[in-house]
Amino acid sequence: MSLLHTVSKSPFERTNLQSCLKLAKAGSSILLYEDAVIGAMQGTAVADLVAAAAKSCKLHVLGPDLAARGLDAGKVIPGIAVVGYADFVDLAEQASAVQAWC
């Protein structure tokens, strides 16, 4: 059992995602939702940082939040799973605890 880290703020507006990536242990889960979903896309200024984290942590991004912002689920960084609301619940249930970065 390990932590589920959730991040909802844009990495270009606050440093929640950056702090989360520094403190998330290998094997833990990270879910990006709301304004944080831009952090899951290829080609952004934080893409290298996120791609590196995706090698040791299980990264997820909420599909409905990508779609709302017109962001193509086919262009997320390889290794990040696009999930729905029901998966969000499952992730929270399976985690030892939820660390909501805010």
Binding site: S10, A67, A68, R69
Partner: peptide, 20 residues
């Protein structure tokens, strides 16, 4: 900054229950 995302094409907001 993030304001450029306001003009992104192809928004589909049904899944978050908000008006596009």
């Amino acid at each position: 900054d993030d304001g450029v995302l306001q003009l992104k094409k192809n928004m589909a907001t049904d899944g978050i229950g908000m008006k596009n």
